[in-house]
Amino acid sequence: MVRKKNFSMRYAAGLPAERIFPGVLADTGQLITPPLQSLPTNGALSVMVWNIFKQQRTNWLNVLKKYGLESQLVLLQEAQTTPELLHFATSNYLATDQVPAIVMPQYSLGVMTLSCANPIYCCPLREREPLLRLSKSALVTVYPLDDGRQLMVVNIHAVNFSIGVDIYKQQLKPIGEQILQHKGPVILAGDFNAWSRQRLHSLYRFSTLTGLQEVRFSRDWRKKAFGRPLDFVFYRGLQVEEASVLVTEASDHNPLLVRFHANP
């Protein structure tokens, strides 16, 4: 059986939705529209990371408007391509890329990265839950920075229900390979479903092998399962200026807000 090639969907204001296949966009013949520009930082880079719970709760849009608009990058998990979310994304960001892990009649569901610049590289990844047979997704994108470096951003929703950690490690493996090949700064963030001691150990071992540091939160209000946090932000080649967790009822996860010092 031939596996279907992974792709992400690109949404941009005034343009039809476009399938983006893995690779350097210019090399694959895919257009980067609007024209390429660097991720605007002015020395600082703000990132919001949030499992948005399929937009099932009220007030999710108000939270995005208040905190997302202050961020150059918004990394969402469990994002549904509803008209309200796509309108917000395309009205305020140059590029919105989603990996359709689960496709329904009206909407698709998966990780979604909103950015104030168009990526020059895009690699959508999917991993099937071994028990539920539903997919979880990840998205690797690379953006030019205004200091000449290239920032790799990985948005992940890790597999949840599995016996042991083999499938968990399997999902992380291609991400680690790309991080190790990348020469510039890196942000890896999302819902890692690290609810067991084995999973947490695997995640920390992965971060050590790829040279990533964990963002620490002084007031740690992250969503937990079995006493362990589920959402993380890891980084390399950047400095953390500020990190906080927003307590909200707009999802079953609390958003993570991180401000990096972007200059080398």
Rank of each mutant, 00 (worst) to 15 (best):
L145R: 12
N193K: 08
R128F: 00
E177S: 15
L203W: 11
N160I: 09
Q181H: 09
I187S: 02
L134I: 05
Y168C: 07
A158K: 03
A158S: 14
L139A: 09
L125R: 01
R126W: 11
D146E: 15
V159C: 13
L132E: 08
Q171F: 07
N193D: 03
L172H: 04
I167Y: 04
V165T: 15
L134P: 02
L200A: 11
G184Q: 04
P174F: 12
P185H: 06
I163L: 15
P185I: 04
R205L: 10
V186Y: 01
Q170E: 14
E177M: 11
A158N: 13
N193P: 09
A194S: 12
S162E: 13
G164W: 12
L203D: 14
V140Q: 09
V140S: 09
L200C: 08
H157F: 08
R133E: 14
L200F: 05
G164C: 04
Y143R: 04
K136S: 02
K173G: 02
A138V: 01
H157I: 00
G148N: 14
R199G: 07
R205M: 09
N193Y: 00
F161N: 10
R149N: 11
I187P: 10
K183Y: 13
E129Y: 00
A189F: 08
P174V: 11
L172M: 11
V186T: 01
D191A: 03
L134K: 12
Q170A: 13
E127R: 05
A138M: 00
Q150S: 15
S162C: 08
L134D: 01
V142Y: 00
G184E: 08
L180G: 10
Q198E: 12
L188Q: 10
R149C: 05
Y204S: 13
H157C: 04
Q170W: 06
P144T: 02
E177N: 14
F161V: 13
I175Q: 06
E129K: 02
L151C: 08
I167L: 02
I175A: 06
R133D: 10
S135Q: 15
S137Q: 07
H182K: 07
H201M: 03
D147C: 13
S162G: 09
G190A: 06
H201S: 07
D146L: 05
I179S: 14
E129L: 00
S196R: 00
K173L: 09
S135A: 13
S202L: 03
E127Y: 00
R197G: 09
M152T: 09
P130H: 04
L134Y: 11
L145E: 08
L132V: 05
L203C: 11
Y168T: 03
L132M: 12
L151Y: 06
Q198I: 04
S202W: 00
S196Q: 03
I163K: 14
G148F: 13
M152L: 15
Y168V: 02
A194W: 10
F192R: 02
A138I: 01
I179K: 08
G184M: 01
A138P: 00
V154M: 08
S202K: 01
Q150H: 15
E127C: 02
V142P: 05
I167Q: 06
I167V: 11
L180F: 03
G190E: 14
A189T: 12
P144W: 05
S162M: 14
H201W: 04
R126F: 06
P130R: 05
D146F: 01
N160E: 04
R128Q: 05
V153F: 11
Q150E: 15
L134W: 10
S196H: 02
L134E: 02
N160H: 15
V159D: 03
L188E: 13
V153H: 07
Q171Y: 11
R149T: 06
P185A: 03
